[in-house]
Simulated scan of single mutants.
Amino acid sequence: MEGAGGNLSELYSSSKRLSMKVRDALERLERLEFTSTSSSSLSSSTAAVAGSSDDQATSIRRDINQIQSLCADMDRLWRSIASKPQRDLWKRKVEQVSEEAESFRTSLDKYQSRRQKRMQEAQERAELLGRANGDSHVLRIFDEEAQAMESVRRSSRLLEDSFATGVAILSKYSEQRDHLKRAQRKALDVLNTLGLSNSLLRLIERRNRVDKWIKYAGMVLTIVVIFIFWRWTR
């Protein structure tokens, strides 16, 4: 059993050294990832960094596999220890190293997944930029259509404002007509009371008809101006 304990100690020491090596390598890999992500240009140095990352990732995965292999050997050995306290102690140590190795593997898988995603996005951006020159006329068409739509919206707003102004003018004409009618009735009552001649009354009536035609002509002219402005802004 002492031989088993001795072998366990050696294997455990080897696994801990490898764990420290893998941890340091993962930290360097993450720093390298941050450096390559911060660079926006695709240069030869960036390509060299990517190649170095691949080499380091391969080396890290190889060390993780070795740690897990050592854990399998240690797991077989601690079961053969006769003393239960020693057996429990080594069980916890082996489980700790095994969990640490699994954590390293998860971190490495996440790193490679992120790197694969970045490479795919970079390739898609390159393809889009490559098609940009060929699709520039489509972008120009979209821009012209957007400008035309904006012009139509402006014309529509101007037409609505003009229509509202015309309605307000016609409303004022209607109010003035009512005022004139009331004034006419009052004047006729006064004239009848004073006994003025029928010729003067006819003159007033003719003047009222002339004012009415002037009012109607003004309404028609307003509508024609609004229609011409609407046709001009289309």
Rank of each mutant, 00 (worst) to 15 (best):
D135C: 10
V167M: 05
S155P: 08
E95D: 10
T222A: 02
K215E: 14
E124G: 12
W232N: 15
W232P: 08
E145C: 06
K117S: 09
R87Q: 09
Y111F: 12
K117R: 07
T233L: 12
T37L: 06
S40W: 03
S136K: 10
K172E: 03
I67Y: 02
A50M: 09
S14L: 00
A4H: 08
A72G: 08
K212T: 11
S15H: 03
V49G: 06
D211N: 12
Q176E: 15
R118S: 03
S155C: 10
D161E: 11
T58Y: 09
K212R: 14
S43M: 08
L201H: 05
E2A: 10
L200T: 14
E145N: 11
L139E: 15
A4T: 12
S40K: 11
V49K: 10
G3A: 04
V190N: 12
F227D: 11
R76T: 14
K212G: 08
G218I: 09
L26R: 00
F34L: 06
E124L: 12
N208I: 05
E99F: 04
S151D: 12
A25Q: 12
Q176H: 12
I204K: 05
S107H: 08
R202Y: 03
Q147G: 00
K84P: 06
T37F: 07
F104H: 13
Y216K: 11
D55I: 13
I81E: 05
G5N: 01
F163S: 13
I60A: 03
S43P: 06
R114Q: 06
Q68T: 06
R114T: 03
S98A: 08
N65W: 00
E30R: 07
D73Y: 01
Q56M: 11
A126K: 08
Q68M: 05
N208L: 14
V190Y: 08
